[in-house]
Design a binder for these strands. Structure first.
Length: 479
RNA sequence: GGGCCCGUAGCUCAGUCAGGUAGAGCAUCUGGCUUUUAACCAGGUGGUCGGGGGUUCGAUCCCCCCCGGGCCCGCCA
């Protein structure tokens, strides 16, 4: 929305031959740097740039708060300290304009660290109004749809994204330092798999074929392992055609990593190390507050055995649950599931009996085999699979397998999933012949895991909505 | 997909219970002010009360439908 008074000031600037949208500015320092190093910088000349977020003036004396990437600093302007042209310019400056300031670092009479503005130039004339300066922007819909306003009006929101970036960068450093190679595998896939989820479908005209936005990058990373890369990872945007809620967005970010010659026990140790050292790096402690409760990341994390735990609490042995019994169990336990089969009912029992008791980081291990189409059977118990999920604050953060490497068994499991698809389970992925061919070539023993960056960022910024950690969360288009 | 709640000025919010032509603060405009910092003082501008329909002499308010958002439930990471 263009404000007519701001537009008039823009015209006035142009009439005076002042470029309201110049090309660059020498931004020597940032607000927080000046504040942190004030004792050595006082009296020095420097330059800053940023958005004017508050302008107070008393006659010919101006106080302008400039917000840059680091924070805010006050700029002073008056006929005594400021060039004539710059003072005249201030008559055409509004809150929201982006300014460049050169001047002397000093304190105001009231003691606030400030820049005595000598030369002030406009770097961008803003034409639309700033949100409220005291309450900020609080309408969640506006905050998510117009994140630029949110970031400008609510600078504390920036910390969430900075923490998110630090998490990702820590993951990369952790994996890189262990010899992992980062890959980028296809987002547009001719078939999809690696997770139980409905995909987004799109049409590729040039190839006259339907493509799918990946629900997972698992099967591609495994092909790299088969090719001999040994340690691979990807920061993967995945897409699932499902509902949006406070912990789900249709596009989300996982870091998946795979390492040859390891099993899920090795990865439990490594995951524990990765997450706990990340928390230590960010907070200087293993213990943090989340929603008013302490979360303790001190390793080792608690271990809970999936099937034993459900049996203990419900009396049901899910490892031998069949699709035929599923309906009966669902009815008795009051479970509503999208599809009534062993997979979904077992999942329902998990959510009912185990999930509520998971606050501190916990590994839940050894899932029923029929829930794990890409996983090796548990050594000594073929009803179970060597799979764990890691939970933090009751939310699933990651999912790890001793990867299935037997091509015959993999084909059998894919065929089983095809049957489930035919029986109406929309989330069961199709068989992937290309992957089967790859695994027939011989895949080394491998462990792999996917960890959710969005959710980890949520927990480590003490948020309860995933949208706060997505710069541009998926919103319904405005009509 | 189901339930509950919300949508009033650019922003933050009152008003709706009990129907009678809309208010505040900030922003903005005009004037004043040389140490303010939610600056202050004085005076202005600004609204199809989310959209459509209904009831009524009269609807921001009551009813219905639609749009958008939030929370909870179901499903999924």
């Amino acid at each position: 929305m263009i404000d007519k008074f701001k537009q008039e000031k823009l015209k006035k600037l142009l009439d005076l031959g002042i470029d309201p949208y110049p090309y660059s500015f020498r931004q020597e320092m940032h607000a927080e740097e000046i504040k942190a190093r004030f004792d050595e910088l006082q009296g020095r000349r420097s330059s800053i740039a940023g958005r004017a977020v508050s302008i107070r003036h008393m006659g010919q004396l101006f106080f302008i708060d400039i917000l840059d990437a680091s924070g805010k600093i006050q700029v002073l302007a008056s006929p005594q300290m400021t060039k004539k042209e710059s003072l005249e310019l201030l008559g055409m400056v509004d809150m929201g304009d982006i300014l460049g300031i050169e001047g002397i670092i000093n304190r105001s009479k009231r003691g606030e660290i400030s820049i005595e503005g000598h030369e002030i130039i406009i770097l961008s004339k803003s034409l639309s109004p700033m949100p409220e300066k005291f309450h900020g922007l609080s309408d969640t819909e506006l905050r998510y749809r117009k994140r630029h306003l949110d970031l400008a009006a609510n600078p504390e929101v920036r910390k969430y994204f900075i923490t998110r970036a630090r998490i990702l960068s820590y993951f990369r450093r952790f994996l890189d330092s262990r010899g992992y190679i980062e890959f980028e595998t296809p987002i547009l896939q001719p078939t999809y798999g690696g997770a139980n989820a409905e995909p987004f479908v799109t049409r590729y005209k040039a190839l006259d074929a339907d493509f799918y936005l990946r629900v997972s990058d698992e099967l591609y990373l495994k092909r790299l392992i088969i090719g001999g890369m040994e340690k691979v990872y990807e920061v993967s945007k995945d897409f699932r055609n499902e509902d949006i809620d406070s912990t789900h967005n249709p596009e989300f970010t996982q870091v998946e990593f795979y390492e040859a010659y390891k099993d899920y026990n090795d990865f439990m140790t490594m995951t524990e190390e990765l997450i706990s050292s990340l928390v230590m790096e960010l907070f200087g402690s293993y213990r943090i507050q989340y929603q008013g409760k302490e979360l303790d990341f001190t390793p080792p994390f608690r271990r809970v055995y999936w099937v034993e735990e459900v049996k203990k609490l419900s009396g049901i042995d899910v490892s031998v649950l069949t699709d035929d019994q599923a309906g009966q169990v669902a009815a008795r336990e009051g479970l509503k599931t999208s599809t009534v089969n062993a997979y979904h009912v077992a999942d329902g029992l998990f959510d009912k009996y185990i999930k509520p008791n998971l606050h501190n980081p916990t590994f839940v291990l050894d899932f029923p085999s029929y829930m794990c189409p890409l996983t090796k059977d548990k050594r000594g118990n073929p009803k179970l699979s060597e799979r764990f999920e890691v939970f933090i604050a009751g939310r699933e953060e990651g999912n790890c397998y001793s990867e299935l490497t037997d091509p015959i068994e993999q084909r059998r499991k894919f065929e089983q999933q095809e049957l489930e698809r035919e029986h109406g389970d929309a989330e069961a992925p199709p068989s992937d012949e290309g992957f089967l061919e790859a695994i027939e070539f011989g895949m080394p023993p491998t462990a792999g895991i996917g960890l959710s960056i969005d959710r980890l960022a949520m927990i480590l910024t003490d948020n309860i909505s995933i949208k706060e950690l997505l710069a541009f969360p998926t919103m319904r288009p405005k009509k």
